[in-house]
Design a binder for these strands. Structure first.
Lengths: 229, 229
DNA sequence: CTAAAAACATGATATTTATCAGTTAACACT
DNA sequence: AGTGTTAACTGATAAATATCATGTTTTTAG
């Protein structure tokens, strides 16, 4: 196992920063690091998790399979995010699958370390609570978006979301490249519909593409579209 | 102010049960009780909340207004549920409105009491955290439902949800009577569509109605419909 | 008790979105 | 480099859902 948690910069971005020196030490001693290849699962819907996963590198999609065989992607998690927290806290099996969107490196932290700290360190618990409150707010927003906005609006929103959260590469394309299918699963629509809208946006000069990469050309117009103009 | 929190049965249903005697005493001394008439707001989207509201009686809808002027109801909260927690914890203004669906009685608990306990009593914090983890899971489920199920399926699900969570009255109708508009806002559809589907379900013998009241006649078939048969 | 308002209901139609079928382009591999 | 495989794309069509118009019933306020 390479570096120690105490020195891990990523920790700054998540609730682990509220841990004391000793607690971190314990986590560091019990953690294991794992690489996950693109397309491989970190865990799957229904699994009983024995700990949480802290993302060091790469991006994971958190999704749920529906009766008709389609996935809905509920969240995209990248560097610094902790996966499986909800499940460990409520001591239920997880309701989501976590699958690597690109090659990943994650640290597994056994639930004992987490539960222990949750019981003893109110600051940590409060920090986790704040994070979860934030996630809940975002989930509410997603609900309203899905039910009130058209597919076109949600597509526009998805591109802006990807830009804001994952940035752009050297050539100005979205740094996180998703397959068309993944995009449709984020937006909650049929893959063909997503592809059609991409073509349409391209024609209208809102975006440009290069292979599966997508670049934003007219942010203002996309924003207006999201707002419903 | 009538009864004291220490004696309040409702407390058993929410995270306040993890409070110590003294903490409860403090809450009891600082709380105020308020009645809210049907249709009146407890708080509205964007409000900065100075505390949380514990529901003693009645039902509140938590909803968010979208750009096109339609509400989306994210949750229905009844006896024992605590409203505004998320906002107080993350110290942001609330993203939802809480409006009384019928006459209500709620206790207002100033945020100081809550924050104080959050910092000092890890059991309480953990209890709140567990609740929020549960809410988050439910929110994820709603996202998947809305995006993967048809309006008909979601309507069927809504009726079953109302039955499971609010029960039936003496005549076997759903105990919680919502307007057709509210139903459509729970399901995330146009009011006319909701009404049409109610008519259809009635014709098929799945439900029966009496005025705006709705009764479930064929639970099995409704369940099958939700599952997609 | 009655007028006005609000909620409920239904038909006709338009729009959005999904599905099915098929083609083309990208990629992976021995 | 050739071939098999998967993902991207496009068109035609069907299905689901929203919208508009309008009438009816129920509730509310004076």
């Amino acid at each position: 196992m390479e570096s120690r948690c105490e020195n891990c910069i990523i920790r700054q971005f998540n609730s682990l920063r509220a841990m004391s020196k000793e607690e971190l030490k314990q986590v560091s001693d019990s953690k294991t690091t794992r690489t996950v290849k693109k397309g491989e699962p970190i865990f799957e819907e229904g699994d009983k998790l024995n700990g949480v996963y802290c993302v060091r590198n790469g991006v994971s999609k958190l999704s749920k399979l529906s009766a008709n065989g389609k996935d809905q992607i509920v969240k995209l998690a990248s560097k610094g995010e902790v996966l499986g927290q909800r499940s460990v806290i409520s001591q239920e099996s997880t309701n989501l699958s976590a699958i690597a969107v690109n090659d990943m490196e994650v640290c597994f932290i056994p639930k004992e370390s987490i539960n222990n700290t949750l019981q003893k360190n109110p600051n940590f618990t409060l920090e986790v609570l704040r994070h979860m409150a934030h996630d809940l707010k975002e989930a509410d927003d997603v609900i309203v978006n899905i039910s009130q906005k058209t597919v076109k609006q949600r597509m526009a929103e998805a591109f802006l979301y990807l830009q804001n959260n994952f940035g752009e590469d050297a050539e100005g394309y979205l740094a996180l490249t998703l397959s068309r299918e993944d995009i449709s699963n984020v937006v909650g629509t049929a893959t063909e519909s997503a592809i059609r809208i991409i073509s349409e946006f391209k024609k209208k000069g809102l975006i440009r593409t290069s292979g599966k990469r997508i670049g934003i050309k007219d942010e203002r117009k996309l924003l207006e579209m999201v707002e419903g103009f």
